[in-house]
């Protein structure tokens, strides 16, 4: 960790917070606090400079216009690139995932991304809306991914990244894989408060940020019930 307390930056909530994205910041802060870690959450709006010294950066979902504007401002700001160079953790969701790549489509035009992940996004034949589930890359050491997706893009992965999961329900990147990660950067189409349904993913980000190999277990009774219920609902929909 860079300072005494764990610093979490929520990037541009004024632009990229379409539906419950605040949840990811709340969940990380809560899970850190329950382990006795002091936490600081900074909400950095798009007219403010991005601090380059935080431990975890969160980028949420958004509509086409705000996504394009957000990418332009992040490129001009340069803070996120400096933070990544210093080993910070970045978690991008939906539009925030796409803009970490080399390019994405918004409002019918192609926009340059931040080039932090080796991915490129374009428009799919239809909007992907519904439950999303997948078996996670074993190297990440966390159980299955569950979420809700709502996006029109399709994302193509280059050799510089690995998919987060193999899709078992929904579309994700392209119907076969979901999300992408390299080092301490991870993006997903599981939108909104993705970490609410995936507490192990929240803890993975916290371990990346703190360097801890293990964190004390928490009571995740309700999250586990939610995960089981969603898994059963997806299975029932398929049957």
């Amino acid at each position: 960790m860079s300072t005494e307390s764990l610093r979490i930056v929520w990037i541009y909530p004024d632009l990229l917070s379409t539906y419950g994205d605040r949840g990811n910041a709340l969940i990380l802060a809560r899970r850190a606090q329950l382990r006795g870690m002091p936490v600081e959450v900074l909400e950095v709006r798009s007219d403010q400079r991005l601090p380059a010294t935080a431990d975890i950066y969160l980028i949420g979902g958004g509509e086409d216009g705000p996504q394009a504007l957000g990418a332009q401002r992040l490129i001009a700001d340069g803070g996120l690139h400096r933070a990544v160079a210093q080993g910070s953790v970045v978690f991008g969701v939906c539009a925030g995932y796409q803009l970490l790549g080399t390019s994405f489509f918004a409002k019918g035009a192609k926009y340059a991304g931040l080039e932090l992940l080796d991915i490129a996004s374009d428009r799919g034949p239809s909007r992907a809306v519904g439950e999303l589930a997948g078996e996670v890359d074993a190297r990440l050491g966390i159980p299955y991914l569950t979420g809700f997706e709502n996006h029109g893009g399709r994302t193509h992965l280059g050799p510089g990244v690995s998919p987060v999961a193999r899709v078992t329900a929904g579309i994700g990147n392209d119907g076969a894989t979901e999300g992408a990660w390299r080092g301490k950067l991870l993006g997903t189409y599981s939108h909104g408060p993705a970490l609410a349904r995936n507490p192990a993913l929240a803890d993975l980000l916290l371990r990346w940020a703190t360097g801890a190999h293990q964190l004390p277990a928490l009571d995740d009774t309700w999250a586990e019930r939610l995960r089981s219920e969603r898994r059963a609902a997806v299975a029932a929909a398929r049957a």
């Binding site: 605040r22 949840g23 709340l26 709502n150 408060p193 609410a196």
Partner: peptide, 30 residues
């Protein structure tokens, strides 16, 4: 989609007896 639950701050309910139910009670529980 139940993601919107995280756009609502339920803190005003602290101090009241709160019960939850419904198809998606677990989302609300989390």
């Amino acid at each position: 989609d139940t993601s919107w639950l995280f756009d609502v701050d339920f803190a005003p309910l602290r101090g009241r007896q709160v019960l939850i139910t419904g198809d998606r009670a677990y989302d609300l529980a989390v």
